[in-house]
Design a protein around this nucleic acid. Structure first.
Length: 372
DNA sequence: CCCCCTTTGAAGCTG
DNA sequence: CAGCTTCAAAGGGGG
């Protein structure tokens, strides 16, 4: 584990429980990055962040006022902590990544650059000038690069009142539509019409059409509801719209039949796949992916995600906390909509069709040997 | 055609 | 309780 979790409040409310402070620890094989970066990265990151986020939020990332009580928790750890993390995921900034620079050529990648003039320090930061194949040391036979001696912290956002009006507030377009955020939940959702108090039923497709009035639209249009289809995840994935859930909106009445089309198991016929609520990073990815793609002329999601992961750690605490809060609200809404739902319900849903993901620890260790 | 890759975070599972 | 596993999004790559 590259990081440890310092959970608090796991009791009581699982929504707020995960708003936590996370301390990303370094591991032994990352000494080079860790040590060499401790001093350098403070400034390196400053410039990185400054440049990277300059497009829209340059000023605030520079100062990092640390207003958030959450992040302040960690401040005692280090005087430089107001960075949020010391070592960027891939340590490109200080030029110690040691990553080969010929990979792109080997692969014959097209020129890769960011249009926004992202920090092309030397070597260029991952999120801008480095082709995905350079970004990923694993792909080139190196040890997985250092993650974070300590890094992103979670935002211990004070629990909101369970009152759905809270949800309504975050659910309004003002929250998600701002800055072209593609709201996972249609902003038109009448969430403000609080769900019936007697909404404890476990979601069932048979119930779905009958959930009229207030919750009908909500349920049918909620992004987490994925009527099963024939694809790998039996999910509705509209690649053209990039909205995995869009078809739920378009095919409200047919969603049931679609769900029934999934013959994976008799159970799948019974209930649609209720997806997990998106976490903070996923929300960030959804919002920023298009931008990164446009800037970097990249389309490969694996590479984009690497960039996004790096940018995520370059975000100021306030900005990160913004997504943590969104995620928390998503979980809250999700819980309100599907009271009986558990992440466990989706276990095996992917791997049923998909081959179970190879054991990463073994894979990493193997690669680590190469990198070491 | 379908899984892999890649990221972080949340939550479930396991010993 | 610590550590591991699975899933969430996304879409090109590759078998």
């Amino acid at each position: 584990m590259p990081h440890t979790h310092t959970r608090h409040g796991s009791s009581g409310d699982d929504l707020g429980s995960t708003d936590e402070v996370k301390i990303f620890k370094d591991e032994g094989d990352r000494e080079d990055e860790k040590i060499s970066s401790e001093n350098l990265l403070v400034e390196e990151k400053s410039s990185l962040i400054d440049l990277t986020e300059s497009e829209e939020k340059s000023s605030k990332t520079v100062t990092r006022p640390d207003h958030s009580p959450v992040f302040n928790k960690l401040e005692p750890h280090t005087p430089t902590f107001n960075m949020g993390y010391l070592v960027s995921p891939y340590s490109y900034a200080n030029g110690t990544s040691g990553l080969p620079v010929t990979m792109a050529n080997k692969i014959g990648l097209p020129p890769f650059f960011c249009h926004n003039g992202d920090p092309l320090t030397t070597p260029p930061p991952a999120h801008c000038g480095i082709p995905p194949y350079q970004l990923d040391p694993k792909a080139i036979g190196l040890t997985r690069p250092a993650l974070y001696p300590f890094a992103a912290t979670q935002y211990p956002y004070p629990m909101l009142s369970p009152d759905m009006s809270q949800v309504a507030s975050w659910h309004t377009p003002s929250v998600y539509s701002a800055s072209s955020f593609r709201t996972p939940y249609p902003s038109s959702l009448p969430i403000n019409t609080t769900l019936p108090s007697d909404f404890p039923f476990r979601f069932s497709p048979s119930l779905l059409p009958s959930v009229h009035a207030t919750s009908h639209h909500v349920l049918n249009s909620h992004p987490a509801i994925v009527a099963s289809t024939s694809k790998q995840d039996c999910g509705i994935q509209d690649s053209t719209t990039n909205n995995r859930y869009s078809r739920n909106l378009d095919t409200k009445s047919s969603s049931n039949s679609q769900a029934n089309d999934c013959k994976d198991s008799s159970n799948d016929k019974k209930k649609p796949h209720i997806k997990k609520p998106l976490n903070a990073f996923m929300l960030y990815m959804k919002e920023m992916r298009a931008k990164v793609v446009a800037e970097c002329t990249l389309k490969e999601s694996a590479a984009i995600n690497q960039i996004l992961g790096r940018r995520w750690h370059e975000l100021s605490r306030e900005e990160q906390s913004k997504y943590y809060e969104k995620a928390r609200q998503e979980r809250q809404l999700h819980m309100e909509l599907y009271p009986g739902w558990s992440a466990r319900d989706n276990y095996g849903y992917v791997s049923k069709k998909k081959k179970r993901k190879k054991d990463r620890s073994t894979a990493d260790s193997g690669v680590a040997c190469l990198g070491a």
